[in-house]
Amino acid sequence: MSDKILICRCEDVTLKEVREAVEKGYDDLESVKRYTGFGTGWCQGKQCVAAAARAIVAFGGQPPAAPITPRPPFHPLPIAHLAALTDEEEAT
């Protein structure tokens, strides 16, 4: 199999890197996420988490009971839009 197969397109994580993580003992979904960085880019795992989970199981890792913890915001949001949500005074 090609070493260039991408599991996570946002962070360029390859299938080979997922296999190496599992072989090193980082064999559950959250640990593989941290060790390879899959799911931490633009889509926050929406595109890759299922493929990564399948790969982990195929390489002998632990079958995940749940997806990686979803992190807000649901979609990337500009700082200016978020800043407009508060009118509290800033501490000085």
């Binding site: 931490t40 880019g41 633009w42 926050q44 913890t69 992190r71 807000p72 915001p73 990337p76 949001l77 500009p78 700082i79 200016a80 839009h81 978020l82 800043a83 949500l85 508060t86 509290e88 800033e90």
Partner: peptide, 27 residues
């Protein structure tokens, strides 16, 4: 969401150009 608002407000004041930059994730 309150955190994001407080942080975004202070960050944008400290460095206005970051207003157009997007937040990807919080934890």
């Amino acid at each position: 969401l309150r955190f994001l608002a407080l942080y975004a407000r202070s960050l944008q004041r400290a460095m206005p150009r970051l207003g157009a930059v997007r937040i990807l994730r919080q934890w």
